[in-house]
Amino acid sequence: MFEPESVAVGAVNDPVTLGVHLALITVVAAGCLLLGAMFAQHRRLGPGTPPPSNSAPAAMSSGSDTEELIDTLIRVHDLSHNDAVSSYVESCLARRGITRIDDPAGDPYDAGTHQVVATEPAPSPDRVGRVCHLVRPGWRHQHTIVRLAEVTVWTSGPRP
């Protein structure tokens, strides 16, 4: 006999897994809302202006809290194994002007946007000093680097 629930693709039947996914989505959504409120308040007041006494606490408008929240959202993006969560976090950050640095393999190494975390011997001399592959994406806000992209770079060392 045909049972539709037994053939559902991508269905989460484990209540613990479903609960973890829902909790993660809730945390990300709350973080995005808080980030939006903080940016809106910062834009309204201007940098260096103390918040009015009837507004949110001063700690909410400080740059370090905003930076910490952005860093946390980026970490959620890094740790998420769920494409929907990663995409949602990325879109929340993008709405605030924070975009990924996703340099493809073969681009020249740039100390201003890349952090070398590993090296590999180059397959040919013309690839020395170029990105072999991206380990973890970097992030930028307009022209300011929030986090360097972690990359593996080809070097002129001997082949193993």
Rank of each mutant, 00 (worst) to 15 (best):
A8L: 15
G10E: 09
G10F: 10
N13E: 12
D14F: 06
P15F: 06
V16T: 14
T17Q: 14
T17P: 05
G19W: 11
V20G: 09
H21V: 04
L22Q: 12
L22S: 09
A23Y: 06
I25Q: 13
T26Y: 15
T26N: 15
T26I: 15
A29V: 05
A29T: 12
A30F: 07
A30E: 13
G31C: 04
C32R: 14
L34E: 10
L34N: 06
L35R: 06
L35C: 08
A37K: 07
M38A: 06
F39M: 05
F39N: 11
F39A: 10
A40V: 00
Q41F: 02
H42L: 10
R43A: 09
R43Y: 00
P47N: 07
G48F: 01
P50Q: 12
P51G: 10
P51K: 06
P52F: 00
P52V: 00
S53H: 11
N54L: 08
N54K: 10
P57W: 05
P57F: 02
P57L: 01
A58W: 03
M60E: 00
M60L: 02
S61L: 02
S61Q: 03
S62R: 10
S64G: 01
S64Q: 07
D65E: 11
D65H: 14
I70A: 10
T72N: 05
L73Q: 00
R75Q: 02
D78N: 02
D78W: 01
D78K: 05
L79E: 08
S80W: 01
S80T: 03
N82I: 01
A84L: 09
S86N: 11
S86Y: 03
S91Y: 04
L93W: 04
R95L: 14
R96W: 05
R96Q: 13
G97D: 07
T99H: 09
I101S: 01
I101E: 01
D102A: 13
P104V: 14
A105E: 04
A105V: 03
G106I: 10
P108A: 04
P108G: 04
A111I: 04
H114G: 12
V117F: 08
T119W: 12
T119H: 15
T119F: 13
E120L: 13
P121W: 11
A122L: 02
A122I: 03
P123T: 01
S124H: 11
S124K: 13
S124F: 11
P125G: 13
D126S: 09
